[in-house]
Amino acid sequence: MLTIASTTFKSRLFVGTGKFSSAAEMKQAIEASESQMVTVALRRVDLENPEDDIMTALDRDKICFLPNTSGARDAEEAIRLAHLARAAGNTPWLKLEVTPDPRTLLPDPVDTLKATEQLVKEGFIVLPYMNVDPVLALRLQDVGAAAVMPLGSPIGTNMGISNKLQLEIIIEQARVPVVVDAGLGAPSHATEAMEMGADAVLVNTAIAVAGDPIRMAKAFRDAVHAGREAFEAGLGRQSTSASASSPETNISTPNLDFISN
């Protein structure tokens, strides 16, 4: 079971709500994914409107509504959006996105850290979207991030995990859950992240723009489950050279005759 800020989740697949062809299709895809954490761009929804099509499609008894600050260019804008989310959306949960470059939508490390620190002080449960930077991940945890969300690859690229080495370091050092976000274009990418020991993944585009989003949502559900199972079962170490299935060693064996007993 995944636990973030004392809330437990059976599913380790988070999904996004953008880019679907209709709210109805989005609703079906979310149900098929069995996700319990769904992120919604604050700029996309009208939280004041009880008839908002995205919000009415979400069963908030079953899923955790995770508003995000998509579009914020700096800490100040993100904090303003966060206040709106808490007031109108009635939740302390927040996926913090600070993306000053509208082309790449890569997160700004400096303002993300600044906004995280401020929002944690104000009582938000902050899950910051971040680049694959191990020291930044630690700094974000130090100021109270409830989870960290390093990107697999730049958003929308479908490139999967492009900085595996540093993601491994983030996972190894983490004191809070690590959720791999952005760039996961295929279920195999999600499996890979889970096999590495990520606590969860967030997928949006790959499901929303698939030929059949509902079947793709199921594929990701199964892929995440398989990856987690493999991680918990204990994977064998990869090697660049072939080795027999009965282990032998090609390690040097120093002379230990100096040891007396």
Partner: peptide, 11 residues
């Protein structure tokens, strides 16, 4: 397997 352990630790 102490020599093997030593080899790995040395590397």
């Amino acid at each position: 397997l102490l020599p093997q352990l030593a080899g790995r630790a040395g590397e």
